[in-house]
Design a protein around this nucleic acid. Structure first.
Lengths: 248, 248
DNA sequence: GCTGAAGGTTGATCGAAATCAGGGCTTAGG
DNA sequence: CCTAAGCCCTGATTTCGATCAACCTTCAGC
């Protein structure tokens, strides 16, 4: 296949041509002229694992598309207890329209590349393109669904079920498989055991034990502490606790 | 269900004149002509406690404003474990733009009155009024914030902290006080002990014990199992576990 | 090389909340 | 009246996951 800049792609900024956010992300809502306008103000960043995004001076007051990597959103209690309240994968949109009172921290879980825009540019897009707001709404509702799904996991699942559910979620998000209903998956865990425990509301010791248990039972294989292979997704699914059934 | 158009109120439908949703709810985004158009398709319902809203034949495929009462949103696992993933108070907007894959049940926790609209009418509003979509986005982001706040509670707080946090949240939503930063509050619990336990991810026995404990310590008073009085909000707050601090 | 820190695993013990069980109060209905 | 069903409270016991502690591996820096 050839990637040409001809009459059909005229107006679409070069940088955006191969960008995933233009297809599945919020930029997909924009007409070429709006896209060009926004692209002019954009800048790309590569972030090291562990670096704070919000609260960090250079990232403050801007919005970003996640181009690659995983960003974790966390909330903390004053005594240090922490909970991860969201994970953002490409091509999610990062940053909040309107001011938010709620204190959320964003941190690169893996190496992350971002396409950032100044706050003003995004706000202008929201005024000029109803379709853009529409897309933001879709993303917000999607995140809401995910958050509620995890509320069930946090509130009502056992530790073994939590860990299995986590692996399943990761596999579906970054697992190497063309087929969405793949029978097997292989992926790199995007976070440490401590992060996983903060996501699941358990301790890292318990995470470790449950991973060992899954490994012993032949449900998963682990290399280098990070690389996980799931041979039978359905076997993993069976360990996640009854999947959401809406009554009869 | 014919609505009279009142010339003296600038085209604002009579029914909407005193409606809270027109001020703080999604209808506040609409111009009088759009509001009139939407109002023509609206219908009011009174729902008994315990009645399912989504999944119920008559309520399916429609959107509603909550005018009074409390609606609980729940998700269940196939083995019966249940988690309440959201509570909607007036003037929240109920129902989901775009279809959702995720199975969520909505049920009246208390007696509830709704102002309902057919799906088509809402979708038309979303096309015609960017401001309306904007308002939906705001509501979605608000619910997302709340969901994430509860993820911290579910994942990282102890049972005593969970119950205290619940009481505080209820007090702030339906507590009888003009002052938002009131020193005291009095309210009717909108749900049973079993519901509260499904909201907090604990058992009803534990909820009961923690309420007793708070009562013994003089933090709250309880009448008729439902009516709760909080004399010192700050004392209750101190029992909620460290309030969200964003590092440093 | 050595050293220390960070991440991970495993074992022993402890404790908070679940589970099991019983009993009280209120309300609806025969 | 009596009975049964909800809802709520409390006590006894159990259990799952937290906590405490030790040890391993890897890696960066001296």
């Amino acid at each position: 296949m050839t990637l040409r800049q001809d009459i059909h792609s005229s107006g679409i900024p070069v940088l955006c041509l191969s960008c995933e956010a233009r297809h599945r992300g919020v930029c997909g809502a924009l007409e070429p002229d709006h896209l060009a306008q926004l692209a002019k103000t954009s800048s790309r960043h590569n972030i090291e694992p562990g670096v704070e995004l919000i609260g960090d001076a250079e990232a403050v007051d801007c919005y970003s598309n996640v181009l690659s990597g995983v960003v974790k959103l966390t909330k903390s209690l004053s005594d240090g207890r922490q909970q991860i309240v969201g994970l953002q994968f490409a091509p999610d949109f990062l940053g909040r329209p309107f001011k938010m009172k709620s204190a959320i921290n964003a941190e690169a879980a893996t190496a992350v590349s971002l396409c950032s825009f100044p706050r003003a540019a995004i706000e202008r897009m929201m005024k000029e393109s109803p379709e853009f707001v529409h897309r933001l709404l879709k993303q917000a509702l999607n995140e809401l669904d995910e958050a509620r799904e995890w509320m069930v996991t946090l509130g009502r699942k056992t530790a073994p079920e939590k860990v299995a559910s986590f692996l399943l979620m990761i596999a579906r998000n970054i697992g190497s498989s063309v087929d969405p209903a793949a029978r097997s998956a292989c992926f790199e865990l995007p976070m440490t055991r401590a992060d996983i425990s903060d996501f699941l509301g358990i301790t890292n010791e318990t995470v470790s034990r449950q991973l060992t248990s899954l490994r012993m039972d032949g449900v998963i294989r682990i290399e280098n502490n990070r690389r996980v292979t799931v041979d039978s997704m359905s076997r993993l699914e069976r360990r996640c606790g009854g999947r959401g059934a809406t009554a009869v």
